[in-house]
């Protein structure tokens, strides 16, 4: 982000970003008046999981800073707890905006803001497309192989917890009569969205 920005020119030339976010989400980000309540209550932000606070994301959308917003860690780090949405005095569904921008980023292949999150979503979707349900053991192994820097992140849970988890986790993929249901739904969705 540059340190100097001509706000009027920025808004004039890139105002369509807020319009597109509105079209995709049905949420009007222009209503935000920067009270900061969303950021004050955001647990992820408070615990250091975001690079840009949620209220700043709202302002950046208003200003049409699309490339910058799509490259933030914040849009991926939001877990949709919706505390921001519940507390917003302007009735903006901020969590829905985060989800919408995440979809926009994904469509454009921009995932560097928080690549490990994107890897998680891909592996999760692959798991349910393949098996119909989540295959946790397979998911866990795939995450460890494909994410960067998380290989040993779970070791501190301690040996008793590891034994308990390993004991309870099914070793084989889930069994279903028709495990192809999710794949079919995902394909149909792509077709339907392609029509628009």
């Amino acid at each position: 982000m540059s340190s100097m920005l001509n706000l009027s020119a920025q808004q004039r030339e890139h105002g369509d970003f807020a319009d597109r976010v509105f079209e995709e989400s049905g949420v009007d980000v222009r209503k935000c008046y920067q009270c900061g309540k969303c950021s004050a209550g955001c647990s992820v932000h408070i615990c250091g999981g975001m690079d840009v606070s949620p209220n700043r994301i709202m302002r950046m959308v208003q200003l049409g800073m699309e490339d910058e917003v799509l490259r933030t860690r914040t849009i991926w780090a939001c877990v949709l707890c919706s505390t921001c949405t519940a507390r917003c005095p302007r009735d903006i569904d901020i969590a829905r905006v985060m989800d919408t921008i995440r979809i926009m980023a994904k469509k454009r292949g921009i995932t560097e803001g928080f690549n490990n999150a994107n890897v998680f979503h891909d592996i999760f979707m692959n798991s349910i497309i393949k098996y119909g349900r989540v295959y946790e053991a397979g998911l866990f192994v795939a995450l460890k192989l494909k994410q960067s820097g998380t290989m040993f992140a779970d070791l501190p849970i301690g040996i008793p917890a590891m034994i308990s988890a390993a004991f309870r986790m099914p070793k084989l993929p889930p069994k279903m009569k028709n495990s192809d249901q999710v794949r079919k739904v995902v394909e149909n969705c792509k077709k339907i969205e392609g029509e628009n």
């Binding site: 995440r102 998680f120 979707m125 349910i128 119909g132 999710v182 969705c189």
Partner: peptide, 15 residues
């Protein structure tokens, strides 16, 4: 089938 949970809705609104 799985509800899609934390990932499905981030892939697309309809899916």
């Amino acid at each position: 089938v799985c509800c899609g949970a934390s990932s499905g809705h981030s892939m697309g609104h309809l899916v």
